[in-house]
Amino acid sequence: MPSSLSLIRLPALSIVDLVGADATAILHNLTTNDVKKLTNDSQPRLGLETFVTNVRGKCLGHVVVFAIENGYRMIGAPGVVATADNSGSTRQSQAIAEHADRYTIREDATPVIRDEELAAWMVIDGDDEPCQTTPPPSMTTQDDIDSYQLPWVKSGTLFLLPVETVADHPSLIAKRLGMEPESLTTADESDFHSHRVAAGFPWYGIDLTDAHLPQEADRETQTISFTKGCYLGQETVARLDALGQVQKKLVRWKLSELSAGTGPAADDKLSAVDAGEGAKPVGRITSVGRIDDQGEGLAMGYARRSHFEAGAKLAGNVGEVAYTAEVLPPVLGETPE
């Protein structure tokens, strides 16, 4: 295995299992992608990225779905969602579970929240460029550790293990990879988010909320099937596809001309280049990646329609330092059938 492998402990994720004889029908009716294509025949498991939409077509959840015995597992960020009566907020997993319950009448489908039962670890290969869809060559399959391939980073594997054995997890994961524990470099959550920004993956609760429409995340090719049939919120999603009229879109920016090692923060605003003082912002940063010693780096955020095409340049400031943010081409994925 390459020496660039790093091990990162993530905070408790949103993990919901939907189980029962009718789990496929219920999940099909609540998600934008064609979950019927999933099969439980690979290790580590390969998933399908999808949005969970409400009746208005807004993003109640953003998860990767995996087939499991007697149902499906939905894994996503530990983001929060506004409660149905707008009296507060709740965790993404809770919102999805309540949503599934609300639309299950006589069907056999039960949502089970697993957030607090499973500890989440990412093993990331910092040298690999393409989004990885197969396990590392030396990964063994002779044990029962749950591992998953997700598009969260360019190349990495998620491991979920019981929280009660957390002290043993690094050695168990190293064994799963055919390595010695000391061969894995320990990193922190900020490193994970730097890799995530490089891969262009939005984190629910940070880059994406229940106020957004699916197309605003600019991941149609990865998340939306326009041939799967009816689902909750489909009318809004289909109308936006036909009209092509989202007014803002999540983009990645290449940042340049910053001071070495310093960068913007979440919620900083960007303006059109050469815009006069007091001009209305046309971009808002939601996540910032690593900034190198040359003052270059990456960020994600929302750009207005006038400035969300690849190559569009915006301007920002960190203190007295002016910098440029150039929109990068989107990270492409497979188009759902």
Results as ranks from 00 to 15, higher is better:
178 G>P: 12
118 L>F: 08
109 A>H: 01
123 V>Y: 02
134 T>I: 09
175 K>G: 12
163 V>P: 08
100 A>R: 04
180 E>Q: 15
104 T>K: 08
155 S>Y: 01
184 L>Q: 12
173 I>W: 07
150 L>R: 06
117 E>H: 07
108 D>F: 04
112 V>N: 13
167 A>M: 12
102 R>D: 12
107 E>T: 02
176 R>K: 15
157 T>M: 05
169 H>W: 02
165 T>N: 15
162 P>V: 05
106 R>P: 10
166 V>K: 15
146 D>L: 12
182 E>S: 15
182 E>N: 14
119 A>L: 07
140 T>E: 15
158 L>K: 02
124 I>Y: 00
180 E>Y: 10
150 L>A: 08
171 S>W: 07
116 E>S: 11
125 D>H: 03
133 T>H: 07
135 P>A: 04
147 S>D: 07
132 Q>N: 03
99 H>V: 08
147 S>Q: 02
178 G>Y: 11
126 G>R: 08
158 L>W: 00
99 H>M: 03
130 P>G: 01
185 T>P: 09
137 P>H: 04
178 G>L: 10
173 I>Y: 00
157 T>V: 10
161 L>A: 08
118 L>C: 04
184 L>F: 07
152 W>Q: 03
179 M>G: 12
114 R>K: 11
131 C>Q: 11
125 D>L: 00
166 V>M: 12
102 R>M: 13
113 I>H: 03
166 V>R: 14
127 D>F: 02
148 Y>R: 02
142 Q>D: 15
167 A>H: 11
153 V>E: 00
116 E>V: 07
150 L>W: 01
126 G>F: 08
